[in-house]
Design a protein around this nucleic acid. Sequence first.
DNA 1: AGGAAAGATTCATATATACGAATATTCATA
DNA 2: TATGAATATTCGTATATATGAATCTTTCCT
Lengths: 106, 106
Amino acid sequence: MDKKIFEMHAEICKVFTNPKRLEIISLLRDGEKTVNELTELAGVPQANVSQHLTVLRQNNVVTTRRNGANIYYKIANQKILQACDLMREVLLEKLSENEKLARRML
Amino acid sequence: MDKKIFEMHAEICKVFTNPKRLEIISLLRDGEKTVNELTELAGVPQANVSQHLTVLRQNNVVTTRRNGANIYYKIANQKILQACDLMREVLLEKLSENEKLARRML
DNA sequence: AGGAAAGATTCATATATACGAATATTCATA
DNA sequence: TATGAATATTCGTATATATGAATCTTTCCT
């Protein structure tokens, strides 16, 4: 049955339900970064960044490469970025509709 | 800050983290359907379908139209389907990779 | 070998989500 | 207006998730 596919699909989508993970994904958009860089850019405790990276890694959203003491993370598949972009477009469209609506209320 | 956008984005993505909701979305792919039709097609209790439809409605993923005692639901924005499709492609690619990997193990 | 930097893991707790069961609302029709 | 069909809501509970704090592992450098 398709049921199994829907379950897996839902599972993957859980990766994108955390604002910090989305920010990390966004930070990786133009290329790989170390955990440290991500930690500083996101302004989030290192352990927490690492926790989120673990989720991203386990779900094949990112891949890693070690260089000495550093570990570089990068987006595994460009389609993931495309999907994120589409969602964001939907979001922004909705926001601008709400804005119009609000303006009409005045 | 972008932080607010990431939060809203994460919020919207929560809609897609439930297999039954994904199935409902899939059932609405080729046009509007009543709650009853969705209930039968998905093989899920009516109240539960209704709960999921509420989530979809509140997040502007679907819109409704009343016709007598029936309420027709449909997808609000085609981009949502596109995003779902992209995610599913990513998923299927991953599956076929895992399959290859498994075959190599023999 | 020892220490420091980079990153990961574990655990406890607070919060969110899903679902069944029961109940309520809305509309059509007799 | 009473009844039934279609749909929605509420509530309790079980399960999942996020995060801080503490701890561990790996690697580099001297």
